[in-house]
Design a protein around this nucleic acid. Structure first.
Lengths: 239, 239
DNA sequence: TGGTCTATTTTCGTATACAATTTGAAGGTA
DNA sequence: TACCTTCAAATTGTATACGAAAATAGACCA
């Protein structure tokens, strides 16, 4: 099982003193970028040492991450990177479809030239990261594309929800994604930018619905690669 | 300005030792039920004394409430009950329309007889509370009606979002609601139960959209009743 | 009376201490 | 070898201490 060590490369070994917000971003990014796998334990002491603050600050951050469903905290057993279930995964994507399709009209209406340009840039960077095999960068850019698009609609409440949902999606892909999950995305976002630029709302909505369904469809649930293989479950009953 | 005193009646003066969860519920309910008005300060010491735990536990709860936008925490100045802006209020209701209308079809599809009955009961209790002037009870029941209905759709992610949104709505009504805001609701929820029972999805969706728009329309923003009247602002410039 | 400055008190932010519980390993037995 | 028991080490939960900042009250002056 993956662990955090004080000298781990996961966060770098600097001795700088990080602020709460930096610690939050540091851990959240490590999870979202798959540097911390689902199920990885997150002991308070180790994190406190890595980030150069006391456990008090770490606990605050872990509590927040738990509310956002990126980590799980079990009483007296500490925190670990969350391991979303299949059900949770499907619900997250259903919620995304509702929110993203539902906001797309407003986003298109509000989109100005430079917004379109910004989306284009992100899509291009994503394609490049994809092709040069920079997985974690591609993941981040994909999430940013979706949030940038929807935040054009101007509803911060919705934007906040979507931010959470994209983070959780990354974690879900870390658990259930095959290589396809990321590969098949390739270039797709550019298509949507076109539809947005031309203000073809209905088509854009249909596109988004399909897009999210496709990502969900690339997930492979099945018996699953447990983090700690439970041999008892596997080898027991040959009855 | 409203304050928490150790002997305040807001939480009762018991000396029982509360768990984190109980403290959370205690404060959240006090806000949602308008016993703690928007802007009320929430000093850690006073809360710690009232609930019989140390500041550590209180801080955890306040952080959580802040993430849910029920309280505001400003560095070095502590926590206070949030004072949502008009913009925030409109965004919350827009988000509710999207989520509740978007989930209603699934909820209706999944609704069984006993679910309908449960909704009926809540609507009836709400009506009774309304008529006997039990404001805070009516508020809670109204929120519960909406969440119960939508949770039938079976998406916990969406349900969690809606739980937050209904809490925030209560706070918004505390700030901007006239007497109308609560009164006009009267009996309305029964109509929706009918539509749900008869599986008239389109009409139910239209009804929900109108219902939420109407609640929003009863809010009176305008110059606003500040919590601490700023006489300087009011009386200064007769120029 | 109204305003400004200063001193006191209150309140928050962070680290640390200590008890309680879990984890993990060593040793013993079938 | 597999399983159970026991004990030490590691880890978390909660309270507390203390420095730093902000709120408050009082004195002083116009």
């Amino acid at each position: 099982m993956a662990r955090i060590a004080a000298d781990s490369a996961t966060f770098g070994g600097e001795s700088k003193r990080y602020s709460d917000e930096e610690v939050y971003k540091g851990i959240a990014e490590a999870i979202v970028e798959h540097r911390l796998p689902p199920g990885a334990r997150l002991p308070e002491d180790a994190l406190a040492e890595v980030f150069g603050i006391s456990r008090t600050g770490i606990r605050k951050v872990l509590q927040r991450l738990a509310l956002e469903h990126l980590v799980t905290i079990r009483p007296r057993r500490g925190a670990q990177v969350a391991q979303p279930t299949e059900q949770e995964a499907r619900q997250v994507f259903a919620a995304r479809r509702m929110i993203e399709v539902g906001s797309l009209g407003g986003a298109i209406e509000a989109a100005r030239k430079r917004d379109i340009q910004a989306l284009h840039d992100i899509a291009r960077q994503e394609r490049e990261a994809q092709q040069s095999g920079e997985h974690s960068r591609a993941i981040q850019l994909s999430a940013r594309f979706h949030t940038r698009l929807i935040e054009l609609a101007g509803n911060e409440v919705i934007t906040d929800f979507l931010l959470q949902l994209t983070s959780r999606s990354s974690l879900i892909i870390a658990m259930y994604g095959s290589r396809l999950s990321i590969g098949c995305d390739c270039g797709e976002h550019d298509e949507l930018v076109e539809l947005v630029a031309e203000r073809r709302v209905d088509e854009a909505e249909a596109w988004m619905e399909r897009h999210l369904q496709r990502i969900e469809a690339t997930l492979s649930f099945g018996p699953g690669t447990e983090d700690v293989p439970d041999f008892k479950q596997i080898f027991r009953p040959i009855r």
